[in-house]
Nucleic acid binder design. Sequence first.
DNA 1: ATGTAC
Length: 405
Amino acid sequence: MSLSYELVQPEGGVPIKLWTRGVPVEPEARQQLANAARLPIVFKHIAAMPDVHLGVGATVGSVIPTLKAIIPAAVGVDIGCGMMAAKTTLRAEDLPDQLGPLRAAIEQAVPHGRTPRGRDVGAWEHPPEPVDQAWAQLAPDFDALCERHPRLRQTNNRKHLGTLGTGNHFIEVCLDEADLVWFMLHSGSRGVGNAIGTHFIELAKQDAERHQRNLPDQDLAYLEEGAEYFGDYVRAVSWAQNFAMKNRELMMAQLVATVRALIPKPFEVQVEAVNCHHNYVQREQHFGQEVFVTRKGAVSARRGQLGIIPGSMGARSYIVRGLGNPESFESCSHGAGRVMSRNQAKKRFTVDDQVRATQGVECRKDADVIDEIPMAYKDIDAVMAAQSDLVEVVHTLKQVLCVKG
DNA sequence: ATGTAC
């Protein structure tokens, strides 16, 4: 039987297994995977998902298991970034014909966009009660962290909880194959997670310099167990991941309340919503060994575990169930993956292209979202086919409304 | 992705 993945053996490193059959992979991404494979702390092999593409330090769409050490830049700065989705009892025909007012109401209810100095655009001016309650839960561990790392206090933290952000972060209303309405959203740990990531990436680089480590790439600097800041990083990254998960829960609640206020028909939202990180690190057992697994643009896919693989603004998204494939460290892709940079997309496509590609979706179609045009992403169907031994599709979702930051 | 500096 042929392998479901491509096997590459970089000289002086662990093997790389790529679930990329029928999907393009940039040579630069291969080089970057090989760099990570040469680190002495990597366990067994590296897994590349079908949406793999070049990132900072580590490749987006990769799973890197490490022994008694973590590479902060492999986790990245968008710590805890991920997806949340929930099915409702609403049906397509319960939605209004014109979705513009609903989009405007969601944009009004959930802070989104940039948070430049002195102006609260993407942040709460006065966080509502549920946000303050959630912050009260997060605050003690954050305060403890700030005692040892005071610069982290100078961040947007409490006012960013329950807010969307920018770029590819979005909120969608979707229909599944049975015309049931779903809510779905994509966001992370906002400013404070970014500051934590940046801070510890810097500390890891200083640590590598002190130890005169010979690294294939400075962005692959790692912190080892016993290093001065290792424990702090583990606590900080875990805190940011909790912040991100709570951030998504709060936005989902806000979204549900907003739709309830606008749609006359009463409806229920499933209690067991899916809420999964795709940029994170955690302790796991693989091949009988306790390891740190860093998923950068990858989702956990243990047997039976539900995950979310979104397509682009105009494409379908998938609710998936993990098959627990041990060779992928029980993981799957986090999306379609880009085929071109944001700048390339803005050069190549016009507003007319964007209008055509997002037909039937109530969303922004202006010059500032062309970098998110569906053609800038890989074909989601090819991506799904390449990982058929990692996940099975449970639901297929098509967006009818999309809010971008 | 985010915030800030250029």
